[in-house]
Nucleic acid binder design. Sequence first.
RNA 1: GGAGGGGUGGCCGAGCGGUCAAUGGCAGCAGACUGUAAAUCUGCCGACGAAUGUCUACGUUGGUUCAAAUCCAACCCCCUCCA
Length: 416
Amino acid sequence: MTTFRSEFLRTIAERGFLHQCTDPEGLDARLSSGPVVAYIGFDCTADSLHVGSLLPIMLLRHLQKSGHKPIVLMGGGTTRIGDPSGKDEARKMLSEADIARNMEGIQKIFGRFLTFGDGPTDARMVNNADWLDGINYISFLRDFGRHFSVNRMLSFDSVKLRLEREQPLSFLEFNYMILQAYDFLELSRRFGCAMQMGGSDQWGNIVNGVELGRRVDSRDLFGLTAPLMTTASGAKMGKSAQGAVWLNADRLSDWDYWQFWRNTEDADVGRFLKLFTELPLAEIDRLTSLGGAGINDAKKILANEATRLARGEEAATQAADTARRTFEEGELADNLPSIMVPAAELTAGIPAFALFARAGLAASNGEARRLIKGGGAKVNDGPVAGETELITSAHLKDGAVKLSAGKKRHALVKPE
RNA sequence: GGAGGGGUGGCCGAGCGGUCAAUGGCAGCAGACUGUAAAUCUGCCGACGAAUGUCUACGUUGGUUCAAAUCCAACCCCCUCCA
């Protein structure tokens, strides 16, 4: 690929964000000549986003940092219909209150990565329910439906794959790309938005939006996608022991978030440093060239930087400190995730399995039992005699009992 | 509306009257080896219970049977073809 003149394209190309672009030269010229408004759409089916969404969030951050205006589009309208993707499982119908609450939670995350406001390069958040809700079917079809060719829609990967695999594809879902294309048009009209970004799976939808803008308004719109994030071993990103790796602190502790990055596979470290931190490339090259034990230092830096972005400076240093004390010095760090247990209960004694389940180290009593039987459970770094061994206040050390599931997952039990 | 195929645990996918809490793979958890990595090997992997065990689960609801994921009926949903 040629060298870009615009800071934004150059940055994201160097850092590995760039997968496809509708018109790289045109976009480069446009970005070089002044601030550009660009957007990425996000679902609001949950009250937090997970690491899987981090890539697009970082794209918006780089965009803003290089002097352009990011728009965060919340899919309030589309969420209301129920996201039909991912087969036929129950389409959760979210109430407006749910959606509003989810948007609020998600907004908190963006506040960490973007600067919101009314200035020329300040980010803003909009909800597509604002225009989708009021659509009149007939006039919508007449005004916009005629610009879509079914023949062409059928040729898009998202649709084609489904048909080839004989998987269900509802009309609703088929219409998704039309609604998304319409979002782009609407944003270009309202805010002069000229670019849509997204994951590579959004390519078809984005291209449709670009074309709709040209046909209806003769606008020059641009589309850009980032590669789909997987780990080097091919797994989807964002899953951890406990499930999704949430960006919101109230869904996943700072400690666990830091640990997620600390446990990155060797082969991913360089790529992740480029994508999920803002360290200069030279520094990243230096870190990843260390090899051997040095790669562990690179992982710590990755964890620190990534945690700092999402959770703040303090959270990052605390998590790093806790990790150092827990893993490298083997002492009891009081910043581990902890649960409170009534002092009286602890005096009476709680069966080990029940305590592990309560501490969140096992999903059920049965799982806790298996963990203990399998020898993976530790109390105060010592072995557990049996599943039913009573843990009492006699086990308190420095005011807490340390439970461990394996070498990495720890929790403290404190009396209250 | 007609004909055919199908709906099984987080996912994929066997089973097709008892020995089925249901083969296998993926994902996950733990152990060994290491570097809080990967790869590899081993164990675990519905819930509850100290436990013989109990309960819940093979689209839904009924039925046949001593016994049903497996047979029958109706219904719901999906796929393909025809109208």
